[in-house]
């Protein structure tokens, strides 16, 4: 244990300020915190769905959890069930064999049901395109709020895409407020 504590103490904190949605500029974590709270009324819960990617995008999504990006520190966490999720983070292309599973995952997700399509393949099928085995981009199967291009998109761009989707929904729904924040 002593060894572990010593190791941790020597490395210190490496977490970097997160990027501004789309613009890429950095801003303090507590502002993102506040914004998520204002829009969702709670931490943002994300369910990742790999609908047929090459696994490159998954490597970069996993990197979001490392101490540099520290997304849990921003109030964003990955959850194990779509029923617990505010957002689906979907990598593509959507294979024909994953089409039904993706639709069912979408149906199981409660409001606000945000969808971020990840990577060139998630945007439009990428190099795999559409064929007997591939439906192409995520938007061909379920509605998409924000698409993050890149092959694969680096973690900072993924994070910017996630925040953009939340903010866009916040602006769109501020007037209607059709879900009660805090207790759902």
């Amino acid at each position: 244990m002593w060894h572990i504590l010593k190791y941790v103490a020597r490395r210190g904190r490496v977490t970097e300020p997160p990027p501004e949605p789309l613009a890429g500029a950095r801003r303090p974590a507590h502002l993102i915190h506040d914004e998520l709270l204002a829009i969702l009324g709670r931490a943002l819960a994300i369910r990742h769905v790999d609908a047929g990617s090459c696994n490159g995008c998954e490597l970069e999504i996993n990197a979001l959890n490392n101490p540099y990006y520290n997304i849990e520190g921003l109030g964003i966490r990955f959850v194990a069930s779509p029923r617990h999720a505010d957002m689906l983070l979907v990598t593509g292309p959507v294979s024909r064999h994953m089409e039904v599973a993706l639709r069912r995952t979408y149906d199981a997700t409660p409001a606000p049901k945000l969808v971020v399509a990840v990577g060139d393949c998630g945007c439009n099928g990428g190099i795999f395109g559409e064929s007997y085995a591939s439906c192409g981009g995520v938007a061909n199967v379920i509605p998409v709020d924000v698409a993050v291009p890149g092959c694969p998109p680096p973690p900072a761009e993924l994070l910017a895409g996630i925040l953009t989707a939340v903010r866009a929904r916040g602006e769109g729904e501020a007037a209607q407020a059709d879900f009660a924040p805090g207790f759902n």
Binding site: S95, S131, A133
Partner: peptide
């Protein structure tokens, strides 16, 4: 397995 089959060899 086979859920991710996206037709690479045909491509």
């Amino acid at each position: 397995l086979g859920y991710k089959h996206k037709g690479i060899e045909r491509r």
